[in-house]
Amino acid sequence: MVKTSKSTMPFSPFYGLVYRAHHPAWAYDPESGEGARIHGGRFNRIGMPCFYAALSPETAWLEAQQGFAFKAQPLTICSYRAELSNILDLTDPAVRDAVQISMAQLGCAWERLAGDRKPVPTWELADRLIAASCAGVIVPSFASRATSNDRNLVLWSWSREAPYRLVVIDDEQRLPRDQSSWLKV
């Protein structure tokens, strides 16, 4: 395993909008990484909070539907203002080379590897990058029917404050404030 130091990281800032389509039960906490913490994901082990978003609403839809676009389940689609430091764009071959990860490793069958208790390259990458103060990565979408234009933002560090500012856009206060709307009568 090659160590990567913060000084050699080709970090860049990210300013813009990102999108997330998630289970409506999480609408009361749209900035949470709890679903990823509970279930794990391509870039986080179970127990580690992580925020997954897309750079377009269409990619958010693809990601949330898990490749079953014609069997759409209810979703809450949110947009977020992001003002982030220490981001790596892993869609750039030079950045992938700098952190020593290949596209094949990024697209690994992480669920199968984890289920077989084998090393998951993207988890190992996340460990290295977090240790080097990386807040998150831009990665290609590996969702079914994704194109090279479909990209995601994965965050390990985010808050409502700089330098890792991420805030849901809810100017009209449409999102619920607690989980009470999901309580069974």
Rank of each mutant, 00 (worst) to 15 (best):
L75P: 00
R117G: 14
S180F: 05
Q73Y: 05
S5H: 02
H39L: 14
A114D: 09
F68V: 13
E111C: 03
W26E: 06
E58T: 09
G107Q: 05
C134P: 12
L155E: 00
S79L: 03
P119I: 05
R81V: 14
F14H: 03
S141V: 07
R160G: 15
L175K: 01
T59F: 08
R96K: 12
L166E: 00
V2T: 12
V167P: 04
E83P: 03
R20K: 10
A64P: 04
Q65D: 09
I101A: 08
I77P: 00
M103Q: 13
F11Q: 07
L90R: 02
R160W: 06
R165G: 05
V167N: 05
P163I: 03
V18N: 01
W110K: 07
P119Y: 02
P93H: 04
E161A: 15
H23M: 12
G107L: 04
P24C: 08
L155G: 02
S148P: 02
I169R: 13
G35M: 03
P121D: 10
A143F: 02
V120A: 13
S7V: 06
R145H: 14
S102L: 02
W26L: 11
E83L: 12
R96A: 08
Y19Q: 00
W110Q: 05
L17V: 14
F43R: 04
T8D: 15
G35K: 01
Y28M: 08
S181T: 10
A162I: 15
R20I: 07
T122E: 08
L106R: 00
I38C: 11
G35Y: 00
R174E: 14
S159L: 04
L84V: 02
L55P: 08
M9S: 10
V154H: 04
I130T: 06
R37T: 05
V168F: 00
A25Y: 13
P140L: 03
A21E: 01
D29N: 15
T122F: 01
A146F: 09
R145M: 12
F142S: 13
G41L: 03
S157A: 12
S159Y: 03
A54R: 00
P140M: 05
E31G: 12
Q65S: 11
K184L: 15
R117E: 15
R112Y: 02
E124R: 07
R177T: 14
